[in-house]
Design a protein around this nucleic acid. Structure first.
Lengths: 209, 209
DNA sequence: ATATTTATGGAGCTTTCGCTCCAATAGAGA
DNA sequence: TCTCTATTGGAGCGAAAGCTCCATAAATAT
């Protein structure tokens, strides 16, 4: 008996897959991004992916496994702007300024749904889906960790004084990002998000530059 | 033939209702608040409300009508802190400082679910539920309008210079509020939200006081 | 008392959801 | 060529969601 979904790629033996697994995953990711986990129905997913139920089941296991894979695809794809913006040159403040602008652009990029696949997902799940809610909270937590890491580098570089409450700065910007995702969903355009980002930077320790 | 759900209160004729409609609505509101519109199932709702399907149908019409009523109950109940904090005395900045603290308290008040019933609702709905998504966007829009109104009063009182971009200030705080709702859902406590609120005020035009 | 109006409990119904199974198919390895 | 393994289309299935209907009950109006 084969364990379903344990074959992420074709392995040579047997009949080869007729569809592009990576492309199908990308399409599924966009459905989840637009509609959330519960909002994305099985039929919508397989229609967008262009596969039959059995092919889906065979290649991805089940809806939840597909979702977790789709989150991974988002993070390394459309969500890649986040670590990238943080790791460019300049001061810590420069990095965060870049991050705000990149976020404003990414959340309103019309090649994908408005907002972000991570920010607003799994917030209303039933207790029996606690694992998925926890998973999303952990994924969201990674951005906090990335920001603290960059801020710590800023302290080492002298951009920020020793003893600065880095966790609080990250928490503040995290809050702004999540809120921007809501605003983007409600139709805020890139310019509005950018202005909000500029205003958020005014709260940087030490005030305006 | 009676139009279903057109009787918000008992009207004297016929058999009187055996349950407290207001109390049942309040319980339903908390289920929606915790689980969202789609996440709240019919069975959960009637169980929380303590009514049978037919009584539910008779008194509230259907799930969507109940939801709209529940939003109204939230706005005049647990959501009442928002207009209240804005309309106290002091400068515009004082009002917004009060608003941030009140929001931090409300979003972490353990007599109800974490966060806010309005901030994160209807963001992933299917196209066939566009009316509900639009409804929630409009409800969210009211807080923007309330904030702009208070800021305009601030300009008239000399708290803010003429020509200040009031819509942008409101947009920024709106973003922070919505983000705080996400953070509260992910477990941020009152103190964390308060610190974020204090930081957000540092972005007030003119800088720190 | 009778008629009228409204509420209630409970059974049941239609649709959707998320698979699940199976026979047929097609490439790889011997 | 002949297995062996994996994939595919398509039918179907059990559970849950969201009502819907109906017979019965209990109030007011006349």
């Amino acid at each position: 008996m084969t364990i379903k979904g344990e074959s992420p790629t074709s392995r040579g033996r047997g009949r080869p897959r007729l569809f592009d697994r990576t492309a199908a995953l990308d399409r599924a990711m966009r459905v989840f991004w637009d509609r959330g986990y519960e909002g994305a129905t099985f039929d919508e997913l397989i229609a967008a992916m262009g596969v039959s139920p059995s092919s889906f089941y065979n290649a991805f296991g089940n809806k939840e496994a597909l979702y977790r894979e789709a989150v991974g695809a988002y993070l390394t794809g459309p969500g890649g702007f986040f670590p990238k913006a943080l790791t460019g040159g300049g001061s810590a403040r420069d990095a965060f300024a870049r991050l705000m602008m990149a976020t404003a652009a990414a959340y309103t990029d019309d090649t994908g749904p408005a907002g972000c696949m991570i920010s607003l997902a799994g917030l209303h799940d039933a207790p029996e889906r606690a694992d998925l809610r926890d998973f999303m909270r952990d994924v969201r937590g990674r951005s906090l960790a990335l920001m603290v890491e960059r801020l710590d580098e800023g302290v080492r570089n002298g951009d920020l004084p020793e003893g600065t409450d880095l966790a609080q700065i990250a928490e503040f910007f995290e809050t702004v990002f999540r809120g921007m995702a809501v605003r983007a969903r409600d139709g805020a355009d890139r310019g509005m998000l950018e202005k909000t980002g500029v205003m958020a930077l005014d709260a940087w320790p030490g005030g305006r530059p």
